[in-house]
Nucleic acid binder design. Structure first.
Lengths: 343, 343
DNA sequence: CATGGTGTCAAAACCGGTATCGGTACCAGT
DNA sequence: ACTGGTACCGATACCGGTTTTGACACCATG
């Protein structure tokens, strides 16, 4: 077994005590310039790499920010994580990421595991948690920020947007632009309650406008372009009179886009497609697919800022909601009425 | 300041010693069933959450696997990370992820920071490292696995594929399928030397087939569908006689696809598009865009297995390469000769 | 010259666990 | 009754840093 270099070794090599070496490396005061030089030189020469375990244990505070996300295949969360990472860069803090796969049990384990590293702050996804997980978060005594969703009561800080509102607004916008025969295609509703909230809001929006949802297709699995294509085919076969389809996200909408493209059905003239998230794909076909541009990167940023502020002030994070308004982009749907307008 | 519950508190509440409590919670032997029950009950009641810092420091081994990736916006690396996470799940080990943004200096910091957590193993991206970073890796005395690339000499384990070969094979395949007037579009060549390797291999493959690259367009930034569209427009304006474009990745190819779609130029009849990675988008337009399907999830899996094996055997990881062959899929290009064949 | 402040450093206590080792208590064998 | 083995438990010494405390040298001041 190899014996790693320790601070003691550095001190020995530099001819000072452990303490002085520690202070010198951390840039503490009360160390002579001469000692600093010698310690740094010694550390470099013997290839010393500090031990975060020891320093964090002794210092009672780590430089970790726990981030709990449901999934990383979904690029939405990658973007959030990126926002977090970028904002954290340079602050001396570091993100540690845990994945739950939308599994509450796994989520509990991940949160617990995070907390056992005594992080400085914690960012978790969503507002709803099982009782035991919520207990952990409440009693963590560190700043906790819940992200992505604002439809509910946060435990600590909260940054995101209302998915219900997003669905509602989109329904209203579609009806206003003249679409009346609207279908819905969604994925993973059982696991992802935010998609469910959007759908609920969408239905509420339609109802308020006195428009009925013509039909829907749902799939329990993860969303993908492929799935979007299949569901669209199925829905269209039964309801070729639709003038608009609302998808629970952009991946599915992209699948629909390809399907209608193959059929040479004009988008959005004959049928309008609307997704959610404003992914790269959407800007690849400018104006063709409507979407709600969600501020993913910004959510990551805001969450970090909330934590930084709480850490700086030393006060625990009170339940505060920060609402970031997503932006609806109907693209060409906004300007082009459906090809076969309602009588 | 709030005082966190410690093992001592649990022990006190359970009426046993700290040691017994420790053993009971970890499922060590030499503890009576009665003590186990009482300790577990006490721990639950006072809401005890272990301290990984302390246990790792005392136990001389963490349950961490460091993962160093250049970027997470790029879904390729998300997939790798997912493969790692999934394979690690249930082993008791946990991934910690660091992002370098292709910046060597930042990479050094990230690796150093990782090592300071004394992880059980380390997974890093790529084969080439600056001298100081390489030194860190060599002297880490833990299993190090380098992923994504096999064109070079690894420090420890190595899982990936040859990007040179991928480019080379694609060139050969395209020429064999009858494409002769070939252009190239790429991104971020300065930072991402794997894209550069593919390009080099591609050129070598063309040369061997006695075909000259007609033209190329490159952009220093990150790849995106938008960028692919712009570069394609630019390239096509100057060279409307191309019968094939090779893109450094699928995002760019998707941009090209949209561009030609708008122009109503037949794909792949008039111009064939080929990317790299086999992303979801490609299967969304089946057969229309060629690609090289890279085993991203598998790379993550294999890297973890290498580390697990090294940990189990206790031996340091010798420089071993594991080559995973990507799979070329030309789609319709394979069966449809270009519309205006070479005379 | 005594006094006190300042800059520099080292010894010791401590952070919250685990490894080690040496005890008890209890039972079976003789 | 004595021995030996086994199951269980706890005191103690760490792990590798940081914080605290205090000592010492040096200088300026009254």
């Amino acid at each position: 077994m190899h014996k790693r270099k320790t601070l003691q070794d550095v001190a020995l090599a530099a001819g000072v005590s452990k303490m002085t070496a520690s202070r010198a490396l951390r840039g503490d005061k009360d160390v002579s310039q001469r000692s600093i030089m010698r310690v740094q030189k010694a550390a470099r020469e013997i290839g010393y790499v500090g031990n975060h375990l020891a320093s964090s244990l002794a210092g009672k505070a780590t430089d970790l920010i726990g981030v709990v996300l449901p999934n990383l295949e979904n690029i939405v969360f990658s973007h959030v994580l990126n926002g977090i990472t970028e904002t954290l860069y340079g602050t001396g803090l570091q993100p540690v990421c845990g994945i739950t796969e939308y599994d509450p049990e796994r989520e509990y384990e991940v949160v617990r595991n995070m907390l056992s590293w005594r992080p400085t702050g914690l960012i978790v996804t969503g507002l709803e948690f099982p009782a035991d997980t919520a207990k952990l978060l409440r009693e963590a005594h560190i700043p906790v920020v819940q992200i992505m969703d604002t439809d509910g009561d946060p435990i600590g800080g909260c940054v995101g947007f209302s998915h219900h509102q997003v669905g509602f607004d989109m329904a209203q916008a579609l009806v206003q632009s003249g679409r009346k025969r609207i279908g819905y295609i969604g994925c993973g509703l059982g696991q992802d309650n935010r998609a469910q909230k959007r759908f609920d809001g969408f239905l509420a929006g339609l109802q308020q406008a006195d428009v009925r949802l013509v039909a829907q297709r749902q799939d329990p699995g993860f969303s993908s372009i492929e799935t979007g294509r299949h569901l669209t085919r199925a829905l269209w076969q039964d309801h070729p009179d639709l003038d608009c389809i609302y998808y629970s996200n952009d991946d599915l909408a992209a699948g629909g886009y390809h399907h209608f493209n193959d059929l040479q059905i004009a988008i959005p003239d004959q049928v309008g497609l609307v997704g959610c998230n404003g992914l790269d794909f959407i800007s690849g076909v400018p104006g063709r697919i409507g979407t709600t541009r969600t501020p993913r990167h910004e959510i990551g940023e805001a969450a970090v800022r909330m934590i930084l502020q709480a850490v700086a002030s030393g006060a625990p994070l009170a339940p505060i909601k920060q609402e970031l308004r997503p932006e609806i982009d109907l693209g060409l749907i906004a300007t082009q009425p459906p090809a076969t307008p309602d009588p």
